[in-house]
Amino acid sequence: MPKRLLKWLFYGALLTGAFTFLYPFIWMIMATLKPEIEVSNLSLIPSKFTLQSYINVFQRIPISRAFLNSLLVSSIVTGSVLVFSSITGYALSRLQFRGREVIFGIILFTMMLPFQITLIPMYVLMVKFGWVDTYQALIVPGMISTFGILVFRQAYKNIPQDLIDSARLDGCSELRIIFQIVWPLSIPTMVTVGIITFMNTWNDVLWPIIVIRKTEMMTMPQTVALFAVGGQADAQMGSILAAATLLAIPVVIAYVIFQRHFIDSMATSGLKG
């Protein structure tokens, strides 16, 4: 096959792919700006632009509260994972102590454990603690991630021992060494763990559906999912799609800004898992 032709074929395939992945999203956004009766039209351009679908969403469900809940939960979980996973990762890679290999084994075991095994007892635990319908139920289970520990452990192996030794001679505690010396040297790793954790927490929906029943405590994906299956939308597709669009927007903005980091982070986590 001539090289030129092959090249055109490749571009054709890439463009078809791009169209397939982008068009549904563009269609969705345009559908939310149409009057309800036009929502399912194939044409992208509405006869008149209207924000009615969005107004409906804001009137019917507490979506801004849900957004704040999700933001709060995802931020705290991410901060906590960065702090505690890096501390654990540091201990495992840079300190000698009895039982280190046992801990490492436990971490690998935990990573392989399907969540279906722990789901039911975790729920029971939340009930016994009185944490159903609280932020604790959404935050505490995610506070340390084994994935984060493994990534930090690997990254910290490359930090020169001299730096750590001289800090110790200066009287630095291990915690100060982690936060003032190790952290600034491992920013890319922190970005990776941060993005993955934030995204997974933001997008998780099974766990919130189980432990949160009160409307005002619900996370954003949960609120939108229940809006789509429940009766509140009055089967108005425009409103449901508007709620979905609102849910997608924060992630899309973050993705457009940090696109490269997102892709690299997910590739790392994919290969690790």
Partner: peptide
């Protein structure tokens, strides 16, 4: 193209499911 192909991966499954249901 890489960025476009990856877009649905980062978007919540809830969004994708609602969209495809329609």
């Amino acid at each position: 193209f890489r960025a476009v192909f990856f877009l649905p991966v980062v978007i919540s499954g809830v969004v994708v499911t609602i969209l495809w249901k329609q």
